[in-house]
Write a protein that binds this DNA or RNA. Structure first.
Length: 601
DNA sequence: CGCAGGCCTG
DNA sequence: CAGGCCTGCG
């Protein structure tokens, strides 16, 4: 247990730019990678294989298939912490910086090349074909077929929109293709990352041992070759992967946007009317009769709007309201808010899906990954160490809720979106979006602002800790890019939580005294207590979280403190509460590891 | 002085 | 919940 990292100092200013920040270290790779090569001929898979192959061929010479086998058990016995911040920091430096000396080819290198090439072949083959891709497992193929099947059914007579124009249908098909392309991109990316992470784990543990042995004999110049090459390869692969995928995704989204723009009579790219709350109508010069498309769009916009669970009425000026659609609340109570989801068997028009993609951004989770090894599905609490793991975790969450409908569902999760509400049709923001996506693909969920979900999570954390250190907060909000402002906002939240908590305590303590309670022992806090209800209502409004017993104990202790103090008329001292605070702040307990998951809520 | 935390207010 | 102000501490 015990996550609380060595709390260096409670009062240390929290400048979130600690060196260990993985996201920040990884970023340079992404930035550099986005535009430094022309994207001319853009065949979905081909660019990936091209770039990857280029790199790999540059670095490696021969190969050996031994590592092609993917162990089904997780990095067997590996310490999940082994590749932590240090590793990332170090890796970043090596990113894309190959040196000749690194080319000394070990068996592992060769094997890795073999694996990667295998993966590449899968990627190249996948997007538009029907799954000869070796790397795709049967489940994925099945599901895709199913999707198509549902798709077909959907188009059958029923309430079909009379195929008014062939152009529209073909555009739909185009959209659909693009969409599928995007989906498979994501799937493949995930698989790739997964595989690379396995290689990573394996090699890291090996090289780590060797590193340790070496370091005992001080810095020895010789013998570095293969280890470093391994690391470099690893990182190169990561970076290349990131880059190629992001480029591909860019392209897909460019295409998507073009498609949508072509559909709309209004070529004006910025500030697309459909998504603006204030100007739902197109200016006068627009056709008086709204086209079918427009109707569909308007309707879908309504749909998405109403489905959003967080039409928050609270004052949350600093809490970014992003379209957080997935309220993937975990245990222990049944989900009352289902995550947003597209059912392919539901009568949803393609354009709705596309629109949603554009409105809420590209990083929607397209259903679970049936191909993931069981070990990954376990999803360790340290998922931040493997950024992509959290994707798997979210998928897991989704699939849990979606139950049998899992197959053929596209569950859109906006959790990792940046806080900007996106304007559809704006190509520039489109580009930004895909770069955001690039970011989130590799260090998912890193975002600048705090969202209502973060607030909710913070409130639940309050059940465990009333006085969290900024370090703890950083650890438990790994999806937040910390800076001074964010930190103080979080601190402020907890300060507000405490305020409410203590006010309640004082209130109920005084009430007890008024009610003639004479003994502290007669003052208690149970789940039936009004006091508890008030607190629960505040921190756990949805009542979907099982409040830990310890919180009840702490609450009772607090109440006792207030009761005693007031009984003894200590409240005449202006700072009489401070003594109580002193007691209570020692009663914090560890926050469960689960809370560390970026996708906890 | 800067920071953390509390109090008050809107 | 957030902002502004105050206090205590190093």
């Amino acid at each position: 247990m015990n996550l609380s990292p060595p709390e260096h100092s409670m009062h240390k200013p929290s400048d979130g730019c600690v060196d260990g920040s993985k996201a920040e270290h990884l970023l340079p790779c992404y930035r550099r990678s986005r535009y430094d090569e022309p994207l001319a001929s853009y065949h979905s898979g081909s660019i990936i294989s091209h770039l990857l192959r280029k790199t790999i061929h540059n670095k490696l010479t021969s190969l050996d298939n031994s590592l092609l086998y993917l162990p089904s058990s997780n990095a067997s016995g590996l310490d999940p912490e082994s590749n932590s911040a240090d590793d990332f920091a170090q890796d970043d430096q090596s990113c894309l910086s190959f040196k000749d000396e690194d080319l000394s080819v070990s068996e592992h290198l060769q094997a890795k090349r073999a694996r990667v090439e295998n993966i590449i072949r899968g990627m190249a083959a996948s997007p538009n074909t029907d799954g000869e891709a070796e790397s795709e497992c049967e489940a994925v193929r099945c599901r895709r077929d199913l999707l198509k099947e549902n798709k077909r059914k959907q188009r059958l007579p029923q309430h079909q929109e009379p195929t008014q124009s062939n152009t529209k249908t073909s555009k739909d098909e185009e959209c659909h293709k693009l969409k599928e392309q995007l989906q498979s991109m994501q799937r493949l990316l995930h698989q790739l990352q997964e595989k690379i992470s396995h290689v990573h784990d394996q090699n890291y543990s090996e090289s780590e041992e060797r590193e340790d042995a070496r370091s005992e004999h001080s810095m020895e110049p010789g013998g570095f070759g293969s280890d470093r090459a391994m690391k470099n390869l690893k990182e190169t692969l990561k970076c290349e992967l990131t880059r190629t995928v992001s480029e591909s995704v860019d392209m897909v989204f460019k295409k998507l946007s073009m498609t949508l723009l072509n559909q709309s009579p209004q070529p004006q790219p910025s500030h697309s009317p459909e998504y603006s709350e204030t100007e739902k109508r197109i200016p006068d010069d627009s056709p008086s009769e709204p086209s079918d498309d427009e109707i569909v769009k308007a309707r879908s916009a309504e749909h998405f709007e109403s489905i959003s669970p967080e039409h928050q009425t609270e004052a949350l000026s600093l809490v970014v309201r992003k379209p957080s659609l997935s309220q993937a609340v975990k245990r222990p109570f049944p989900l009352h808010q289902t995550p947003f989801q597209f059912g392919y068997n539901a009568p949803l028009h393609d354009s709705q899906i596309l629109e949603h993609l554009l409105k809420y951004g590209p990083h929607s989770t397209f259903s679970a990954m049936p191909c993931l090894p069981a070990s990954l599905e376990r999803s360790s609490p340290d998922s931040m160490e493997h950024p992509w793991e959290s994707v798997a975790m979210r998928s897991k969450l989704s699939s849990g809720h979606l139950g049998q409908h899992q197959t053929g569902l596209v569950s859109v999760d906006a959790l990792c979106l940046p806080h900007v509400k996106m304007e559809c049709g704006d190509l520039q923001s489109m580009a930004e979006r895909s770069s955001f996506m690039t970011l989130s693909l590799n260090s998912p969920h890193i975002q600048e602002g705090l969202t209502p979900n973060h607030l909710k999570k913070a409130k639940l954390m309050f059940f465990y800790t009333r006085y969290p250190s900024s370090n703890l907060l950083k650890n438990f909000f790994p999806d937040v890019k910390f800076n001074r402002c964010i930190t103080s906002q979080l601190i402020k939240w907890f300060s507000n939580f405490r305020e409410f908590y203590y006010i309640q305590m004082e209130k109920f303590a005084r009430q007890a005294i008024i009610d003639g309670v004479n003994d502290v022992k007669d003052v208690s806090v149970t789940r039936e207590s009004e006091l508890f209800r008030a607190l629960n209502m505040h921190y756990n409004k949805a009542n979907d979280f099982q409040v830990p017993d310890r919180f009840l104990e702490v609450a009772e202790i607090t109440l006792h403190e207030f009761y005693s103090a007031i009984s003894l008329s200590k409240d005449s001292d202006p700072s009489w509460k401070k003594a109580i605070y002193k007691v209570i702040c020692k009663l914090d307990s560890d926050v469960p590891e689960d809370f560390k998951s970026p996708s906890y809520l």
